[in-house]
């Protein structure tokens, strides 16, 4: 007989510390991973549209007038740090640290997610001030189709965090809630991966080829 695999779904595995949650989590989390991969293909389509639209500026404002790399840098650091804090929350969960620690790391993640959204919306507003609105050119339509799509995912993640916080309070640390936390962490890490694609292709690519 083969020994049981040490790793049965993407992300941090809860393992023997929480056998109930581990079993319940395995199948659903793999299904969630399949969903994330199809989400990735959707993002890929938007990236494809953006790349082909990069020259279609129709005399409107282009990347050099619109992009603020300092703000993008800050957003990158915030999102990266939130990916770490969500990982620390998962570790606290796996190794049975006091519940306060778990809630603390999730709360820090929520705060970082909200500050990311704040900076991103501020960027969009300053872009709109310079005439960079979606209907101005094909390039801007593609830009507004892709970057806010990621922002929407982050916003959904923030709502998810709040809902999980409420569920944790009402239902307690049940296997179901724990298993949802596992998927939230996976979702959050995935968003950071998409963001790396966005800074590389949308922002740096836009500045190089736009």
């Amino acid at each position: 007989m083969k020994p049981a695999p040490t790793h049965s779904y993407p992300g941090l595995n809860l393992g023997r510390g929480r056998p109930g949650a581990h079993k319940a989590t395995e199948v659903v989390t793999f299904g969630f991973w399949v969903f994330l991969m199809s989400d990735l293909v959707y993002f890929g389509l938007m990236f494809g549209v953006y790349i082909t639209m990069i020259d279609a500026q129709a005399g409107g404002p282009g990347p050099h007038e619109l992009f603020d790399l300092y703000s993008i840098f800050a957003q990158t650091l915030i999102l990266l740090t939130s990916s770490l804090t969500v990982g620390l929350a998962m570790l606290a969960l796996k190794y049975d640290l006091p519940r306060g620690r778990i809630v603390l790391w999730f709360a820090v993640t929520l705060l970082l997610g909200l500050s990311f959204l704040f900076l991103e919306i501020r960027d969009f507003m300053s872009m709109a001030d310079k005439g960079g609105i979606p209907q101005r050119s094909g390039f801007l339509s593609a830009l507004y189709g892709l970057v806010p799509l990621h922002g929407l995912h982050v916003a959904a993640g923030c709502v998810w965090l709040v809902v999980l916080g409420i569920q944790l309070r009402v239902m307690g640390m049940t296997d179901l809630v724990v298993s949802r936390m596992v998927r939230l962490a996976l979702f959050w890490h995935f968003l950071d991966l998409i963001w790396i694609g966005i800074i590389t292709i949308v922002y740096f690519g836009g500045l190089t080829y736009g």
């Binding site: 049981a4 695999p5 040490t6 790793h7 049965s8 779904y9 993407p10 992300g11 941090l12 595995n13 395995e26 793999f30 990916s83 990982g87 996976l186 890490h189 995935f190 950071d192 991966l193 790396i196 694609g197 800074i199 590389t200 740096f204 690519g205």
Partner: peptide, 26 residues
């Protein structure tokens, strides 16, 4: 920059999402 981005994707896949060449059931 593109190569650095790709490297970062791989680092995060391995260290955050724990996806590597270890045997897994799925």
């Amino acid at each position: 920059i593109g190569l650095l981005g790709l490297a970062q994707l791989i680092v995060q896949l391995v260290y955050f999402l724990h996806i590597d060449r270890r045997r897994s059931s799925r």
